[in-house]
Design a protein around this nucleic acid. Structure first.
Lengths: 151, 151
DNA sequence: ACTATATCCTATCTATCAAGTAGGATTCAA
DNA sequence: TTGAATCCTACTTGATAGATAGGATATAGT
């Protein structure tokens, strides 16, 4: 589950927009608030706009705002908008994989892994990500100390 | 949750070794069985050996075998051996991330996502992957039709 | 109309990495 | 001794991530 710089930035920008919703905020302010390169932030905001997740206003007093309520946009949608599918196996969708011999059951494993990822990213809204009030199922995943340990 | 070619190949090779355990199998046979490039398979087997997951025997009649019972090696171990940590956020471990403003709660989200991935890959042994008899928790994730749908 | 401040568009750069290949040195059982 | 295997070092190739540059376009306020 590798999240690229684009993905991370996109989520940080989105939760910042969620926090200020429904005010419009400039790319400059967003980049400053999260300490990320302004030009790169512009590119990412362009992706989010084309994905229909944010609306933009040009000119003085312009900027960006979420196109829907922060409660209605999931983190998963944001990640997909900038990075494509949440889960890929050697560049293919999990359900498109197919193997011979002892590996025949692996597609089920890949699908299970994707479902696990989805259950987190599609189950958390920008509003929840901004407030830290995650759904119980997600909160439980971070409850055990082991979850915070590297492996 | 991107699985690289190395990662996919490593798992396919490992379940093939699990299926033949404790026979030793040559890189050539493994590559042929899974239809993957022999030289690349050799490289991957070297990674698995250095990680202590497989033992190798040189010379005629040589080859590779799992260093532990297939029930005792998880898919997660194999993936880590060839691709590094299962989850990274912009190249960092989830618990090492830290943000300002509305993004302060994101580390918990990343940790939750990692925990979800781990629950699948660390919860499935090579023996289970080879037989398709996944743990209940994992099997449930693939039960719903939605899990098989692209998004 | 002018100006300041935005978004938006196209193009480019650079370093890194994934994926795979090549060739041969080394090991070992029969 | 021979054949088949691992093992080691090096290399190639193409794609991609992560930016940056420069300017065209829009808009609110004066």
């Amino acid at each position: 589950m590798q999240v690229s710089a684009r993905g991370e930035y996109a989520v940080r920008i989105s939760v910042t927009l969620a926090g200020g919703h429904p005010r419009t905020i400039s790319a400059n302010s967003l980049a400053a608030a999260q300490e990320l390169p302004r030009k790169f932030a512009e590119v990412i905001l362009g992706d989010l706009r084309r994905a229909g997740l944010v609306d933009s206003v040009r000119g003085v007093e312009g900027g960006y705002r979420l196109s829907r309520a922060p409660e209605d946009i999931s983190v998963g949608e944001v990640l997909r908008a900038v990075d494509g599918p949440l889960s890929e196996i050697r560049g293919r969708r999990p359900e498109e994989t197919s193997y011979e011999g002892d590996a025949v059951n692996l597609p089920r494993l890949w699908v299970a892994a994707r479902a696990a990822v989805r259950s987190v990213f599609d189950g958390v809204s920008l509003a929840q990500a901004a407030t830290g009030e995650f759904p119980l199922r997600v909160a439980e995943l971070t409850a055990e100390d082991d979850a915070w340990m590297p492996r």
